[in-house]
Nucleic acid binder design. Sequence first.
DNA 1: GTCACTGCAAAAGGTTTGCAACGGA
DNA 2: TCCGTTGCAAACCTTTTGCAGTGAC
Lengths: 145, 145
Amino acid sequence: MNWIEGVIGTLNKERHRITRPRSNLLHIIAGYRSPFTAEQLYADVQGKHPSIGRATVYRTLDLLHSRGWLARVHRDDGEHAYVVADSRHQHYLVCKACGDVTAFEGCDVDSLLGGLARRLGFEIEGHWLEAFGRCRRCSHTSTPA
Amino acid sequence: MNWIEGVIGTLNKERHRITRPRSNLLHIIAGYRSPFTAEQLYADVQGKHPSIGRATVYRTLDLLHSRGWLARVHRDDGEHAYVVADSRHQHYLVCKACGDVTAFEGCDVDSLLGGLARRLGFEIEGHWLEAFGRCRRCSHTSTPA
DNA sequence: GTCACTGCAAAAGGTTTGCAACGGA
DNA sequence: TCCGTTGCAAACCTTTTGCAGTGAC
């Protein structure tokens, strides 16, 4: 629940309002353990709170993403999905079988890119790294866990 | 022009046809020096060959991408763009100022991810790495080169 | 001549926007 | 009360699809 508290703190600080639809969305989002798309969230929301509109879902995702509370994950097909994020810089291992996401830091990529950048005279401002594969459970079974 | 020849060779081998619209598209694509979107390509095509339809543009991009002749680049906003690619595995440095793309191989990321994967029991099948920043020219000027 | 390819138009997604009403602070 | 937020519906934008006609081989 720490994530939710963090988000609410931020919103308060910025004079945003903690409305009921917003709060409902936050709780559903906090419950996800894999990346989710906007439409998926909308569908889930409809189940519990049918009165919440599609626009609210999109606007909320936008808000959370712009504040760094959600990270975008690029799916194979280019569709964008979101994952709950803390504010540190992270990368993701995405399991193709079960959809599970493992985040990792310890970003040695920085030094890798650093050397490269020096060589090319490129000034790096940010990067995106994501790996796809099968998580421990799924690599031991033929079907998703 | 090497890229075009390569593409045509592949298409021939696979019993695809080198039609006039296809050929026109190839030439325009080969001329790009930055990532381009489908709509951008369509617009450019319209200028020179107004009779070519949107569907053909999308279908051609799809074909080229599926054969590895075009690589997808994720833009900041999540929009997908394409860059001319050869068949090796590559990563890209994308200049935010001028849009220039520098590809690099020497993928030390593999070893980095390898260690990580072992630790987590994750079986990696592929990864995506992309860096954003300013290229040599643009980091020396305030305006895009 | 065959069949991959084409343009068109319509449909299908996914996302954004305008607006009047609503309701947190 | 004030103004950020909401739901709705319509608009938008990008991409896909069905189909009859076309043209590369």
